[in-house]
């Protein structure tokens, strides 16, 4: 290591890791904006029943007299073909999108992480089986697989979640496998084994902490993809069943009335854009922030 690098390191030694991370993060406007967007999106989804101007419109409400209202004060983005408030439905649609993210990543991240850790640390036939399975799953286009699964089953939120999850864990498994394999070769892993640590300790206490930064960056960026994929499925009619509002199916429904009633597409479309943009900015910010240790 060069002397200059050492000097930089020496100055780092006087600061806490948390301070260095905060410093890097706070100097990235994009990351801060991303955080604000994601937090606001979550708030909108959680408090949808209270902030939506017409929360009743989420259900099977039909009010043909109010159909295709142009944007006005009572209906900021107008109403749809059965007279429901677009904005209210879009707010509830974000709820569905974020629930989908929670479900898909809540299952596939832990599953992928554990499989990746195990494959990278143990090697041998365990590694061959897990990486083989991962490669086979990765060979299938995610949208096609998701369409096939939701075609076989009923189009519900749970099934859409299942369809995406089935494929999603592979990305995490492959990523963590690579990190785990390189960490497993470090001296401190051998030292831990020599001093009597068992495989569970090594996997979860020694290797996993070194994967946390990679996992959190990947998960954040993934959230954006999952929202897009979920919206695509609903757009094609394989996602959430009506009348549950979903951003994808709202765009699909509003599409027929373009360009006259543009609010019907614009509002859910903008919501998708808003949330995905937020997650992407946050993901990039996290990547810069964690760069400290690598």
């Amino acid at each position: 290591m060069s002397d200059a690098k050492m000097l930089l390191d020496a100055s780092d030694r006087e600061m806490s890791a948390a301070y260095m991370m905060w410093y890097r993060y706070s100097r990235k406007p994009a990351a801060v904006i991303g955080t604000l967007i994601v937090l606001s999106a979550i708030a909108m989804a959680v408090f949808a029943p209270w902030i939506a101007p017409h929360p009743k419109d989420v259900g099977t409400v039909v009010n043909f007299r109010a159909r295709h209202h142009a944007p006005e004060l009572a209906h900021l983005f107008g109403t749809d073909q059965v007279g429901r408030d677009i904005l209210s439905r879009a707010l509830f649609g974000m709820r569905v999108s974020l629930l989908l993210v929670l479900g898909v990543l809540g299952i596939s991240v832990p599953v992928g992480t554990v499989l990746g850790l195990v494959a990278g640390y143990f090697g041998g036939w365990v590694e061959r089986v897990i990486t083989g399975l991962t490669n086979v799953m990765l060979a299938m286009p995610p949208l096609v697989l998701a369409l096939a699964v939701s075609n076989l089953l009923e189009p519900t939120l749970t099934n859409a979640m299942l369809a995406i999850t089935l494929q999603w864990w592979t990305w995490h498994a492959r990523l963590i496998y690579a990190v785990s394999k390189s960490v497993a070769a470090e001296d401190y892993i051998e030292a831990a084994r020599l001093s009597g640590a068992g495989p569970l300790h090594i996997l979860f206490r020694e290797i996993l902490p070194n994967c946390v930064s990679v996992i959190s960056v990947k998960t954040t960026l993934d959230a954006a993809f999952v929202i897009l994929l979920g919206a695509t499925l609903s757009f094609l009619g394989f996602g959430v069943k009506p009348p549950t509002p979903d951003l994808g199916s709202m765009v699909a429904a509003g599409r027929q009335f373009m360009p006259d009633y543009w609010g019907e597409v614009l509002c859910p479309g903008a919501a998708v854009l808003y949330v995905t943009l937020g997650f992407n900015l946050l993901g990039d910010g996290l990547r810069d922030m964690f760069d400290v240790e690598s």
Binding site: E186, D187, Y188, S195, G196, N210
Partner: peptide, 21 residues
């Protein structure tokens, strides 16, 4: 630099062999 786990404190590193005993 490579024989100590960067994510574990000194106490955590020392506790591994002690736990094993």
């Amino acid at each position: 630099g490579t024989s100590l786990n960067p994510k574990r404190t000194v106490a955590q590193s020392l506790s591994v062999p002690l736990k094993a005993l």
